[in-house]
């Protein structure tokens, strides 16, 4: 019983890393993903092609590889902690997936919305900012919720560059207590709770901001 309490508290120390990596990666991917989606839909030929290439290449690579490349490649030039390096790597990967999500969402906003906004005298950027994006983001919530769950689980991958997140800690415990089922079982339980609450929260947002057309 005492062991279990110890196990929980020990794993929970890794929770901060898990949540931190997830939030950084998702926010990073959100901002850049929307930016890339806008380039894809509204950008000139060059910008749109570059964004498309980025998305295709990144999505073709295992996320672990992106983490390695960023950590061993870029962190030689810039001094990045393994934690930040891992979080950014996941962010770069998530950017590619989120750009696809938002591109689809932007394209599914009816064309008449942009025309009506321009007819009111809004500039292209204002039309995007006040009319297109608010609708696209609402449309994107279900797919985004899925991506959030994936990133949350992928955050465990930063252990490959030595960041002691939850899964890594479960491994330590398992090696020391020789009871892998309990150690990994508890880790699984914590992941489940995290993912479940996140998706529940996003479901609420989806219902709250549902667009009726």
């Amino acid at each position: 019983m005492q062991d279990l309490a110890f196990l929980f508290s020990y794993l929970l120390q890794g929770l901060g890393v898990t949540i931190g990596v997830t939030i950084i990666a998702l926010s990073f991917g959100f901002v850049l993903g929307i930016g890339m989606a806008l380039l894809r839909v509204y950008g000139n030929k060059l910008a749109s092609t570059l964004a498309a290439i980025y998305s295709t290449v990144i999505r073709a690579l295992p996320v672990v590889l992106v983490i390695f490349i960023l950590y061993f490649g870029i962190s030689r030039i810039v001094d990045l902690s393994p934690f930040l390096s891992g979080a950014f790597a996941l962010g770069f990967a998530s950017t590619a997936y989120q750009s696809e999500i938002f591109r689809g969402a932007i394209l599914s906003v009816p064309q008449g919305q942009m025309i009506a906004a321009r007819a009111l005298g809004m500039s292209r950027w204002k039309s995007i900012r006040y009319i297109i994006l608010p609708q696209a983001i609402r449309i994107a919530i279900p797919a985004w919720s899925n991506e959030a769950a994936i990133v949350l689980k992928d955050s465990s991958l930063v252990y490959v560059i030595g960041v002691p997140e939850m899964l890594r800690r479960a491994e330590y415990v398992s090696a020391r207590t020789l009871e892998p089922f309990i150690a990994f079982g508890v880790a699984a339980l914590i992941y489940f709770i995290l993912t479940f609450t996140t998706n529940r929260g996003l479901d609420y947002l989806e219902r709250r901001y549902k667009l009726q057309m």
Partner: peptide
């Protein structure tokens, strides 16, 4: 163009109200 359009009101066949 944006300045010009402010002075021209346009009403469309399919309304095009902003859904959100």
């Amino acid at each position: 163009i944006d300045k010009i359009r402010q002075r021209i009101g346009m009403v469309f066949q399919d309304f095009n109200l902003f859904n959100h």
